[in-house]
Design a binder for these strands. Structure first.
Lengths: 104, 104
DNA sequence: TCCAAGGTTCGATGGAATTCGTACCTAGCC
DNA sequence: GGCTAGGTACGAATTCCATCGAACCTTGGA
């Protein structure tokens, strides 16, 4: 069944976004997505050293924070960074994070 | 006694900063400081609806994350936003947060 | 049809985060 | 000196976070 818990673009909460990005693992996923093209990517294409259920948990956090859109394909599932929505709501945030993460 | 747990400018951790800013109360304090002049401000000048010990706790989080510098004056204590350090380490971060927080 | 790969859900668990009360400290003021 | 305002330290309680295992589901392929 599809995911219905992603916030609409205009109600994405800054606290939730920052909380999601505060975690090193989730932040690395977002940075990874920023380095890929702006399309869907298979969840299985991320090499996360965690139990399956823990991966599910982190994808949910990112989804509920409004950072990613997720699509269930029964078999696998796919994620896409919500670049436009985030750029519209919090201009420059993702760019700033990307630049900050590439620091020393 | 003085506070010795503030990180040096070059080792401020992005995760710690984002974690500190994820909390609505702490974020509001930082935004408040951004709206004031770039000097020391008395901790007692912030109207935080919390027990004294909880306020101390949140100042410590902000201090240890590297967001503020805190000075003990025996009697009161004073904080100052580390604008320059943060701008040097994570360019544009505070500006972006400020802009984002002023959104709808 | 059976099986494997990829995910979810549900409980459980250990640890961190947040809050508070109490006791204590320091400087300034009467 | 004694009092007060502003803070800290510490312990306790509570809640939230991150992790996992086990059971289950769905699709695609042998």
């Amino acid at each position: 069944m599809p995911y219905t818990d992603a916030p609409a673009p205009e109600v994405i909460d800054l606290g939730a976004v920052l909380g999601a990005l505060a975690d090193p693992l989730r932040r690395s996923v977002v940075l990874d997505l920023l380095g890929r093209d702006d399309t869907e990517h298979a969840c299985s294409s991320f090499d996360l050293p965690l139990a399956k259920s823990t991966r599910t948990y982190h994808w949910r956090v990112l989804r509920q924070a409004g950072l990613v859109h997720q699509r269930d394909a029964g078999n696998g599932s796919y994620v896409r960074l919500r670049r436009d929505d985030l750029a519209a709501r919090f201009p420059g945030l993702l760019d700033t994070i990307r630049r900050a993460a590439h620091q020393v």
